[in-house]
Amino acid sequence: MPTLRRRILEFLPRLNVHVKDLESGAALVTRRNGYRVTPVGPRSWLVRRGKDGFTDQISRMAETSSAKKWSSVGLGPNAHLFVNGKQDDADEFQMQKAAQDYMGARHVAALLRHYQVNCVFDVGANIGQYGRRLRQHGYTGRIVSFEPVATMTEKLRRAAENDPEWWVYPYALGREERVDTINVVYGSMSSILDPTTFGNERYKRFRNTRSQEIDIRRLDSLMDEALKGIDAPRSYLKLDTQGYDLEAFAGAGVYKSEFVGLQSEVALMRIYEGMPRMAEAIEAYEAEGFEITGMFPVTREETTGRVLEFDCVMVRADAMQS
């Protein structure tokens, strides 16, 4: 039988009051519509509105016994972060990770708009998480995804099948074209490189791998085809190849200067043999004219708090159009 609270919440829309359920015992109640609620962790939500005055119109959490546990943090004139103050360390870790992922995606989406990007090269696409996130954050241009692991490529194709501007290639990218093998690992950690001792200790999944033969292509050999039909290409390069980013970047050849921005996972701790450390990777990108706009933690050890990898987002400032 519905509780009195539920009956009240169901009645409020008749009074032009908008109700958004968050979880059992908590709801967001506002007098204006047009807000968006994004979960960013256990009992944490980011609430945004696209019009001025949102801060004044955020009403209150529904009056429940748990309402007073919530805190609201302003993130500019049109966004608030609601957090349940009662979170243990594990909840806090998950909330921060989800919030950082979300803010990183927002940062990239804003850069793509600001630099008028119309083609994103998604290298190491896995099952299409990055492409879907681009679409969710409003990017409408072409996406060109590369994923060599056959089982992942099939899922990636399904993710892109109803999107004519999302192209999929079943290749790895590198500095030279050849046939090689990749270590197929559960999830998104398959790599051409072998894991280090640290990697084996950190990720138990490395103990259950299999090999797959793959084609490695140079990016510069595919650029003309990938950009076909775009009159004035403004491209962005996203690299997530589990330790092979600099090799894939090298294969772009003279096209490196054509990218207005790039995004690469840079490592503080070597998970794979031969992968570059963060300083080496950033130095290589800076040598090609890219400058950092944001660093977002990808993985962090819960026990020590240290970051293992960052998503490094960079742009070529002279590519900014007036």
Rank of each mutant, 00 (worst) to 15 (best):
T3F: 07
R7Q: 15
L9G: 11
L15A: 15
N16L: 10
N16H: 14
V17C: 09
V17L: 13
V19E: 05
K20Q: 14
L22T: 12
G25Y: 11
T30S: 13
R31C: 12
R32H: 11
Y35N: 08
T38S: 10
G41S: 03
P42N: 13
P42L: 00
S44G: 14
S44K: 00
L46N: 04
R48T: 15
R48E: 15
D56C: 00
I58H: 07
I58Y: 13
S65K: 14
S66W: 02
W70I: 05
S72Y: 10
G74T: 07
N84E: 11
G85Y: 01
K86Y: 06
F93A: 11
M95N: 03
K97W: 06
Q100S: 12
M103T: 12
M103F: 15
A105V: 00
R106P: 03
V108M: 05
A110Y: 08
R113T: 15
H114M: 07
V117L: 09
V120Y: 04
D122Y: 08
V123R: 03
V123G: 05
V123F: 05
V123M: 06
G124A: 03
Y130P: 09
R133I: 06
Q136E: 14
G141F: 03
V144N: 03
F146H: 07
E147D: 11
M152F: 11
M152W: 03
T153M: 04
T153L: 02
K155N: 10
K155E: 15
R157T: 12
R158V: 10
E161V: 13
D163V: 08
P164S: 08
E165I: 04
W167Q: 13
V168A: 06
V179L: 05
D180C: 01
I182T: 07
N183R: 09
Y186G: 13
S188K: 02
S188L: 00
I192R: 11
P195Y: 02
T196E: 07
T197G: 12
G199N: 08
R202T: 13
T209R: 12
Q212Y: 05
Q212A: 09
E213H: 05
D215M: 07
L219W: 07
L222I: 11
L222W: 09
L222Y: 02
D224H: 09
E225V: 06
G229V: 10
P233Y: 03
P233W: 00
K238C: 06
K238L: 05
Y244T: 12
Y244A: 07
Y244P: 04
G251E: 08
G253W: 06
V254P: 11
V254S: 13
Y255G: 00
K256G: 10
S257T: 14
E258I: 00
V260S: 14
G261R: 02
S264Y: 00
E265K: 02
V266H: 01
R270H: 07
Y272G: 05
M275S: 12
A279P: 08
A281V: 06
I282H: 01
E291Y: 07
T293P: 03
M295W: 02
F296M: 08
V298M: 02
T299Q: 11
E301S: 15
E302R: 11
E302Y: 08
T303N: 06
R306S: 09
V307K: 02
V315Q: 04
A317I: 03
D318E: 15
D318N: 13
